[in-house]
């Protein structure tokens, strides 16, 4: 239970960073934390479903459910890709406006955004 609450707090930390920080790169960090917390929860809980690694090698241990691990593998890659793309966009915005602060960027992009 404690572990799950801690992961939940991690998730909320990510969300708060994502919303409250004005720096684009820190926003991306927040998103990465948010995503990792969800992945963490799924894998952590899945690991309680047995004792052994999900490799069939004749050992007597009850293996864990391999599905969460396989699914989260996919979710991790997708998370990395989203992060990379977000950083690329942030870099591009920085080059266009000279700032990483979202309010400054909005202001400098100016009247296209009335």
């Amino acid at each position: 239970m404690i572990a799950r609450i801690l992961v939940g707090l991690l998730l909320l930390t990510g969300l708060a960073t994502l919303v409250a920080r004005r720096n684009l790169v820190k926003k991306v960090f927040g998103l990465a934390i948010l995503n990792s917390a969800a992945v963490f929860l799924f894998v952590m809980e899945g690991a309680h479903s047995g004792q052994g690694a999900p490799i069939v090698d004749g050992s007597a241990l009850q293996i864990v459910d391999p599905l969460p691990q396989a699914l989260m593998l996919t979710a991790i890659v997708i998370g990395v890709c989203v992060t990379a793309l977000a950083l690329a966009i942030a870099a591009r915005l920085h080059r266009a406006t000279g700032s990483l602060d979202i309010d400054v960027i909005k202001e400098r992009l100016g009247n296209g955004h009335d």
């Binding site: 994502l18 926003k27 948010l34 591009r92 915005l93 406006t97 955004h113």
Partner: peptide, 16 residues
Amino acid sequence: PGAYLASFSYLMVSAA
């Protein structure tokens, strides 16, 4: 440039 900001907002909220 505005499209980059629009895309960034779209990406962040949709990824969340």
